[in-house]
Design a binder for these strands. Sequence first.
DNA 1: GTCTATAAAGCGATAGAC
DNA 2: GTCTATCGCTTTATAGAC
Lengths: 187, 187
Amino acid sequence: MAKPPTTRDAVIPLLAEAFREHGYQGTSMAILQDATGLGRGSLYHFFPGGKEEMAAAVLADIRAWFDERVFSPLRSASTGAEEARQGVDTMFDEVRTYFRSGRRVCLPGVFAIGRERDKFDDAVRGYFAEWVDTLTAALGAAGSSEPRSRALQLIAAVQGGIVLARALDDPDVFDTVIDSARAPIDL
Amino acid sequence: MAKPPTTRDAVIPLLAEAFREHGYQGTSMAILQDATGLGRGSLYHFFPGGKEEMAAAVLADIRAWFDERVFSPLRSASTGAEEARQGVDTMFDEVRTYFRSGRRVCLPGVFAIGRERDKFDDAVRGYFAEWVDTLTAALGAAGSSEPRSRALQLIAAVQGGIVLARALDDPDVFDTVIDSARAPIDL
DNA sequence: GTCTATAAAGCGATAGAC
DNA sequence: GTCTATCGCTTTATAGAC
């Protein structure tokens, strides 16, 4: 919008926010220009594949962020019971901040329920598969009896919490959903 | 597609499936023609407001279905504890069948996380608000200590289960998520 | 690298014949 | 009531000047 960035990497977060706000189909090149402050020519210079390459780059960037801030900590937390519990705690802290209690959508989640799922199949599935796998491992290390079911339930609570908080236009709903899902055994 | 229907009411379910498969923005008039077997002229005859009126009619139809099959039973089940439990049971049966374990998306949910939320604000909010209210009442009657939090959690499990089942391309995930969410107290 | 101009296709919506 | 033809606009993508 304001200051035109000069590197491909600096552009990606701006593209990401545009895709999150308008969805894949709803995001036009004109919107992408406004969001980045760049002209058509510059965008196609950085992303010759156009809109599809931009969305793919955004998904890769999101994946990298979660790898570093969520998945990797969960993985390395799976050594002992106490570390595992703390790994899950920090996951929810990161996630709550990242999604801003549902004010910000999960782009892989949005793509999952739309036609974009086909086009970005690997990225969408990979994102959620790694989340499930790493959280399952952490929950198992923390002593959960059915770690995979519990991991699916908690991740679904995050995704459903986003949907519900936005539908009701009430961010508190997101926090309530997460807290309720965690409550029974605090794992 | 196959047989062109002749009444407005008969067209709506076909439109609904098209919107569910392609999203609001992704559903073009050409797709709507294919889905209904009707020409442009006929569609505009039934829905002078075009695409927006069609989507509004679909949302109203979905709302009516849930009113009859889910919300109304939940409301009338809120008289006694045992009826309330059974009302919640039938809700999950209806929902599991309706969403086909995540193979079918929830259109109000899809609209909630997209830009369509603004245009169909009342319909989206009304659908989820009534779901939350009626389920809260039933859970309260069934003896739940925090019925509203629990209602939000269970509805979020449905929405998140759809997202996750589609992302992982595994309908079993939907059922696992629902069962896990219900497990702790079976309410 | 960044821009504007423009091509080629698809969009929603309308008009008018039947 | 249903159709086809078409308008006017927006879309993605490309070309070429600077």
